[in-house]
């Protein structure tokens, strides 16, 4: 690893440790990392949307027009309309003219909601209902031949008829639980109770899955600090002008900052404890 990359990696390790320091308490290093990422992420999306959004969708389409004619002579001049409407959004900056920004907002909301209705009905409602009722399109209906499992009794077989029935009944029961226009009593109430069981198992499984994903990320950050930073700092093959000490210097300077802050916090902690003791 060359020295410039190592310096950047050291900074990445610094912001990683600074972010982890929030586990102890809110502190200046965490605040630095937090404020930095807000600015950098905002700038990043400005650039991405400019280069991947505005340039290909607007500027290139108007490119054959002349700026001194306000691109009105472009062959795709009608793309000036969304640009003007977009610019009208900026009237929000003015108290007097902010109502004008409702026009592009109305257009935006109208198109978005109009697109959403058939797509949501298709993707989230119809296709989910279809998949709940017809699990296997090649062999629609319940797999009675393998109801208790493929090749013998096996309740853990996810493709068995039993699992298919359970998915269907579970989904219907969970929907019944969400239906509040009828009192949850009698058979309806029992179905709702079964629905909440299914929901709780689902929430538990999703929770466990999410925790494992976060822990994987945590392990990844520790691997980064170990493999990308510490090991490169300690590797004697990394050199600047035939010398390894610049790597060591940067590494130990970082360690000094971290340990120095920990000592500072400990001193603060114990001194404030002494002050907080009740004087009798």
């Amino acid at each position: 690893m060359d020295f410039t990359t190592f310096l950047w990696t050291t900074f990445a390790a610094f912001v990683t440790l600074a972010t982890f320091s929030f586990l102890y308490k809110d502190n200046p290093f965490y605040k630095f990392a937090e404020h930095l990422v807000v600015g950098v992420a905002a700038g990043y999306f400005v650039i991405i949307l400019w280069h991947n959004g505005l340039v290909p969708n607007l500027f290139r389409r108007l490119a054959d027009g002349d700026w001194y004619l306000l691109w009105l002579n472009s062959t795709m001049w009608w793309y000036l309309i969304p640009a003007i409407l977009g610019a009208l959004m900026w009237t929000r900056f003015s108290k007097r003219w902010s109502w004008v920004s409702r026009w592009p907002m109305g257009l935006y909301i109208g198109i978005s909601t109009g697109v959403a209705i058939p797509l949501e009905m298709s993707n989230r409602v119809s296709k989910q209902l279809y998949a709940t009722m017809i699990v296997n399109p090649q062999n629609p209906g319940i797999d009675w031949a393998n109801f208790w499992g493929h090749g013998g009794f096996d309740l853990l077989d996810v493709a068995s008829g039993f699992s298919q029935v359970l998915i269907f009944i579970g989904a219907v029961a969970a929907l019944i639980y969400f239906f509040f226009s009828k009192a949850h009593t009698g058979i309806f109430g029992k179905a709702a109770t079964f629905g909440i069981w299914i929901l709780m198992i689902g929430f538990g499984a999703s929770f466990g899955f999410t925790v494992m994903a976060r822990i994987s990320l945590f392990i990844n950050r520790l691997q980064f600090i170990d493999q990308e930073w510490i090991q490169h700092a300690m590797n004697p093959e990394n050199m600047v002008n035939g010398s390894h000490w610049p790597y060591q210097l940067v590494f130990w300077a970082m360690i000094l900052v971290v340990v120095g802050y920990m000592v500072f916090e400990l001193v603060q902690h114990f001194s404030s404890k002494g002050k907080a003791a009740p004087a009798e």
Partner: peptide
């Protein structure tokens, strides 16, 4: 067991939630 939990009861629960969310989006739209 984990695979069964993810693919059977969790799938049923997620389906119900997705259908509910879809109907909610349509109603709001």
């Amino acid at each position: 067991v984990s695979s069964w939990l993810m693919n059977v009861p969790n799938l049923a629960a997620q389906r119900a939630i997705i259908i509910g969310v879809g109907l909610g989006i349509v109603a709001t739209a």
